[in-house]
Computed example of a mutant assay.
Amino acid sequence: MSLIIGLDHVNLLIDAGDDALSTARTFYAGLLGLQPLERPANTDSGNPGVWYQCGVQQLHLTTEKDASSVNKKSRRHPAFRVADLEALRKKLESAGIEIIAGNRFPGQERFFVRDPWGNRLEFVERTGR
Rank of each mutant, 00 (worst) to 15 (best):
S2E: 11
L3Y: 15
L3G: 14
I4N: 07
I4T: 02
I5R: 15
L12F: 12
D15K: 06
G17E: 04
L21F: 02
S22F: 09
A24I: 02
G30Y: 04
L31H: 01
G33F: 04
P36M: 02
E38I: 08
P40A: 10
A41Y: 06
N42S: 14
T43A: 10
D44K: 13
S45Y: 10
N47I: 00
P48Q: 11
V50M: 07
Y52Q: 00
V56K: 15
Q58A: 05
T63R: 13
E64G: 10
A67K: 08
S68V: 14
V70R: 13
S74T: 12
R76I: 12
H77V: 06
H77L: 02
F80W: 06
V82M: 01
A83N: 09
L85M: 04
E86N: 09
L88F: 11
K91A: 07
E93P: 03
E93N: 08
S94I: 12
I99S: 08
N103R: 05
F105Y: 11
P106N: 00
E109W: 06
F112N: 01
F112K: 00
R114G: 05
P116D: 01
W117I: 04
G118Q: 07
G118D: 08
N119Q: 03
L121E: 06
E122A: 04
E125Y: 12
T127Q: 09
